[in-house]
């Protein structure tokens, strides 16, 4: 009709053949944003955060460019090999410890909201039965699935595998995993939880911590774990119990204090580790500030500064 298509603006053609090869070392981050041409697809392969049009690799997210040999990818936010991602969503990997909430009870499976792009799946076959018996799950088990986990229950689990559509499958086949009680949930950006040797931390103040890699932290009363972990003889009623134990006032205070400390540190973008939390707790006790005072702006700033200085 009347119009011819617009010619592409000249400045893109100018930068089109940027040489990804030169001075590309891992410590420095090159930035990009959607629609920017990174390189030619003949010389390079496209990775995450990129797509190919007319033999050109184009970024689809704003962030940093990564290159591994012939693979070029763009990572959202400030993420690069040198610095982990700031993606607000959790990107699961097999073996990760996550804390999720049951969102749905389905046929032979639970749907679990674990802050990922899709709900995770917990198969009936991948939980421990009360009594610790190892056997095929029967129809009778299927009928009483709500006795194990109900909608809204919090649980800690491990990522077992992925389905073809990218959603993850969880399992709780260890005594360490299962339903959560006796505590409080704190949510932080997933970046702030780094992979540690153990994500089950017992703080000296009588508080247990579970750091989920999906950015959820469970702060609870300390429970003594039997040394013969993994043994068949565990108390079935307790594992799937919905009843909190008796928690005394000082423990409640300690739990709230730890929770507030985590909130404060997360607000100031400080990655969480066990040593850091112990430090922060000691600082809070030394300063004799009340539990709620930790959340006050000035106290919180002082806390973060004191803790970061000690690292």
């Amino acid at each position: 009709m009347l119009f011819t298509p617009f010619p592409p603006p000249p400045r893109y053609q100018d930068v089109a053949q940027m040489d990804v090869d030169d001075d590309f070392d891992g410590a420095e981050a090159k930035m990009t944003s959607p629609g920017e041409i990174l390189t030619s697809s003949q010389a390079f392969m496209r990775g995450h955060g990129t797509f190919v049009v007319d033999e050109e690799v184009i970024a689809s997210v704003a962030g940093t460019i990564d290159r591994v040999n012939k693979l070029v990818s763009a990572r959202p936010g400030g993420r690069s090999i040198a610095s982990p991602d700031t993606d607000p969503r959790y990107n699961p990997e097999v073996g990760d410890l996550v804390i999720g909430r049951i969102s749905e009870v389905g046929p032979r499976r639970w749907k679990v909201d674990a802050n990922a792009r899709q709900d995770a799946v917990l198969m009936l076959a991948s939980i421990n039965l009360p009594g610790g018996i190892q056997r095929r799950k029967l129809e009778s088990d299927e009928l009483q699935m709500r006795n194990f986990f109900e909608e809204g229950d919090l649980l800690v689990a491990e990522v077992q595998a992925f389905f073809v559509d990218g959603s993850m499958s969880l399992h709780t086949r260890s005594l360490k995993y299962g339903k959560l009680r006796n505590g409080q949930l704190v949510t932080v950006p997933p970046v702030l939880v780094r992979r540690l040797k153990s994500h089950f931390i017992a703080l000296p103040c009588g508080v247990d911590l579970i750091l989920g890699l999906n950015g959820r932290v469970w702060v609870s009363k300390h429970v003594h774990r039997e040394e013969n972990d993994g043994d068949e003889s565990f108390d079935a009623a307790l594992v799937y119990s919905n009843q909190n134990d008796e928690i005394d006032v000082s423990t409640r205070e300690a739990i709230s204090r730890v929770s507030n400390i985590i909130r404060v540190l997360a607000d100031r973008f400080v990655p969480l580790t066990d040593a850091l939390l112990v430090d922060a707790y000691e600082w809070a006790v030394d300063q004799e500030c009340k539990v709620t005072e930790i959340l006050h702006e000035d106290v919180a700033d002082a806390l973060a500064a004191a803790v970061v200085a000690r690292i």
Binding site: R11, Y12, V15, M18, D23, A27, E28, A29, K30, M31, T32, E36, I37, L38, T64, I65, G78, R79, S80, A82, S83, P84, T86, V191, F269
Partner: peptide, 13 residues
């Protein structure tokens, strides 16, 4: 990028 402790180089464009 700066907050996560990386250095910045100007990218294409």
């Amino acid at each position: 990028v700066k907050a996560m402790g990386g250095a910045i180089v100007a990218g294409p464009g």
